[in-house]
C-alpha cells in the first residue's frame, strides 16, 4: 500500500512547532511523542504488536489528541487477542472523533466491525472511506464481501513527518 501523507491539522502543526521551539535548538529533531509514534509504526510493521502498543501509549501519554496514534494503538491491541476488541473500537472511535477524515481509521474500524459481525456498520465505514481513499475502500470491500481479515497492516497510519 502506498502510504498517504498524514494530514497534519493546524493544531498539530502548531503543537509540533511549539515543541521544537521549546525543546531544542536542532530543528530536525522530532518531538518525543513523534519519536515514540514512529517507533510504534516500525514495530507494528514488524508484527511486534505488544511493543507497538507500548510505543503508541507513550506517544498518547504526551499527546492525547493524536488521531493516528489512537488508530494504530487500536490495531496493535486487536492483534493481541479478541479480548481487546472493545478497547480497539474505543481507540478507532477516538481517532475519528479527532480527525473525521482519517481514512486509515475507517479501514481498521470497518475490519473490526466485520469481525464483530456488524456488516451494516462495516458498510457504512466503507462508504465513507470510498470518498477518502479509493484503494483502501477496495481493500475494505473485499474484507466485507469475504468476511475474512486481510493479511498485512493495510490501514496503518504511517510514519510521522512534519
Amino acid at each position: 500500500m502506498i502510504r498517504k501523507t498524514i494530514i497534519v491539522t493546524t493544531a498539530l502543526l502548531l503543537a509540533a512547532t511549539c515543541a521544537f521551539a521549546a525543546g531544542s535548538k536542532k530543528k530536525e529533531e522530532p518531538a518525543k511523542w513523534a519519536e515514540s509514534y514512529n517507533q510504534g509504526v516500525d514495530q507494528m510493521k514488524a508484527g511486534d504488536f505488544a511493543a507497538a502498543q507500548k510505543s503508541f501509549e507513550a506517544a498518547l501519554a504526551a499527546k492525547d489528541d493524536f488521531a493516528e496514534a489512537h488508530n494504530n494503538l487500536g490495531f496493535s491491541l486487536r492483534k493481541q487477542g479478541d479480548a481487546h476488541r472493545d478497547k480497539a473500537l474505543e481507540h478507532y472511535n477516538r481517532a475519528l472523533e479527532l480527525n473525521p477524515k482519517l481514512a486509515e481509521a475507517y479501514m481498521y474500524r470497518g475490519v473490526l466491525y466485520v469481525l464483530l459481525g456488524d456488516e451494516a456498520k462495516a458498510k457504512a465505514d466503507h462508504n465513507t472511506l470510498a470518498e477518502l481513499d479509493g484503494e483502501l475502500a477496495k481493500a475494505l470491500l473485499q474484507v466485507i464481501a469475504t468476511g475474512e481479515e486481510p493479511e498485512g497492516t493495510a490501514g496503518l497510519a504511517g510514519t510521522w513527518t512534519n
Partner: peptide
C-alpha cells in the same frame, strides 16, 4: 448472490 459475492472477492 451473497455466497457468490464471497467467491467473487476471494
Amino acid at each position: 448472490a451473497r455466497r457468490g459475492m464471497r467467491l467473487f472477492f476471494s
